[in-house]
C-alpha cells in the first residue's frame, strides 16, 4: 500500500475536517465525527443535519468510538483511477458500538487475515504532505493487538 504510517513527531492535518479530527493529546489519533440525534439517540456518519430516523433537525456532533468490528470486507485487486492505494488492499465496513457503519481501509495486516467480526481500531495513515510540509492524514482501521496472556486461555 502506498499510504504510510504516521510519524508522530511531525505536524499533521486531517485530509477531511468534516469526517474526523486529530486528537493531539493522544498523539494525533483520528477521531471520527459522528452526528447524534438528541431526540431518538441514533448516530450517523458522515455528517447529516436531519435525522432519518425521526426527522429531528439539528444533530449534535459527537466523537465516535475508536474500536469496532469488521461487518464485511473485500480484498480489492484493482485500483480505481485517481486512488492512491496499491493493490491488493482491503476495503471494509466497520461496525462501531454506536450502530454506525463506516467505510474504511484495513491496514497493518495481510489481506487474507481479515475476517468478518474481527476487532479493529482506528489508526492514521499518511496520504501526502501539504505545502507547509505537514503530513495530511486519512483514517484507516487495523486489527486490535491482543495482549499475549489472553491467547493462552
Amino acid at each position: 500500500m502506498a499510504i504510510q504510517q504516521k510519524d508522530r513527531a511531525r505536524p499533521a492535518v486531517p485530509l477531511n475536517e468534516r469526517l474526523f479530527r486529530l486528537d493531539e493529546a493522544e498523539g494525533g489519533i483520528p477521531v471520527l465525527l459522528g452526528w447524534r440525534c438528541p431526540d431518538c439517540g441514533h448516530h450517523f456518519f458522515p455528517h447529516r443535519t436531519i435525522c432519518p430516523g425521526c426527522g429531528h433537525i439539528g444533530l449534535e456532533e459527537v466523537d465516535l468510538s475508536r474500536r469496532g468490528k469488521v461487518w464485511t470486507y473485500t480484498i480489492a485487486h484493482q485500483v480505481p483511477p485517481g486512488a492512491i492505494v496499491e493493490a491488493p488492499y482491503v476495503i471494509a465496513r466497520i461496525e462501531l458500538p454506536e450502530a454506525v457503519l463506516v467505510s474504511s481501509l484495513i491496514t497493518d495486516c495481510a489481506p487474507e487475515e481479515v475476517r468478518v467480526g474481527m476487532e479493529v481500531e482506528i489508526t492514521p495513515v499518511k496520504v501526502r504532505e501539504d505545502e507547509e510540509g505537514r503530513d495530511v492524514l486519512a483514517f484507516a482501521f487495523r486489527p486490535v493487538k491482543k495482549p499475549a496472556k489472553e491467547t493462552k486461555s
Binding site: A83, L105, A138
Partner: peptide
Amino acid sequence: YQALLGLTI
C-alpha cells in the same frame, strides 16, 4: 475522500 482511498469501487 473515499475515491482517493479507493473505497468506492
